[in-house]
Nucleic acid binder design. Structure first.
Lengths: 134, 134
DNA sequence: CTGATATATTCGCATATGCGCATACAACGA
DNA sequence: TCGTTGTATGCGCATATGCGAATATATCAG
């Protein structure tokens, strides 16, 4: 079995794992440290169920790891470098359509490239009005 | 509309475009210069129809460009850096499963990282036994 | 220990998208 | 016109997605 094809297949799996906006945003969120499922769900405005499913996909691809503490399941980047790699990918979407203002990409690049924000010390119980730089 | 989500969506489109082994291999082939559809189809052991479809996906995502010369449609990387970026992605699949021998990844990395082979001067008419380092 | 609550995962189902294939169609050169 | 080259279309199938409900699992009160 040709090695090049095998490797291409695994690469394709990696790309598939990241081929969803919400999964990319999860990686983005985790740059600044571990989060539990609920905190992620709130930050990304998703249900815990979907959040958990996306995390499962990322976990299967060895992109995140789980740490349990009581009822909370904390997730963190298993390979933090992947975040920077994704940022590099912004280079290749700048020429895509005109759907995106280059200034928006620049601002997102700045956010991702900046030293990660420490996790806000919010309690996970707060269900709304968490500060977001969306 | 939150900029971060918009950008994440475009990134996800990029990942989707690359989320198939054959499309990755097309990028790989094009590292060494432009190829026409038939040459790619032969090298990748696919039908011209599928090859053309995959090229269309890559073209929509601004990863390849087309140059027509008579009956032949030549394709080449619009953003050659994307090949090196994909190679970097190999870093993140080395820990995936044990499906792949690390030595295989290393060899593929070497192939991709090496200065691209000049296109073999094969005629496109040869339908089999083209030299491959699979 | 029992029951109630908080947290996270899994399941079932409907819909959408991607894939592979075959085939029809279009563009070009001889 | 005829063969070559490439693209577009339609079909069957598999997989991904989104959502709500059901099911764990852990904590806590009594």
């Amino acid at each position: 079995m040709p090695a090049r094809y095998l490797v291409a297949r695994e690469l394709a799996e990696l790309f598939k794992a990241l081929a969803h906006p919400d999964r990319i945003r999860i990686v983005e969120e985790l740059r600044s440290g571990e989060r539990d499922v609920n905190a992620l769900a709130i930050a990304l405005k998703m249900t815990p169920a979907r959040t958990s499913q996306y995390l499962a996909v990322l976990r299967l691809n060895r992109l995140v790891e789980e740490r349990r503490d009581g009822r909370h399941h904390f997730y963190f980047l298993e390979q933090p470098d992947v975040a920077q790699w994704i940022v590099t990918g912004l280079t290749f979407i700048e020429r895509r359509f005109n759907a995106i203002d280059p200034a928006q990409i620049a601002s997102v690049r700045a956010i991702w490239s900046a030293p990660a924000d420490p996790p806000t010390s919010d309690r996970t119980e707060e269900t709304s009005s968490s500060p977001q730089k969306d």
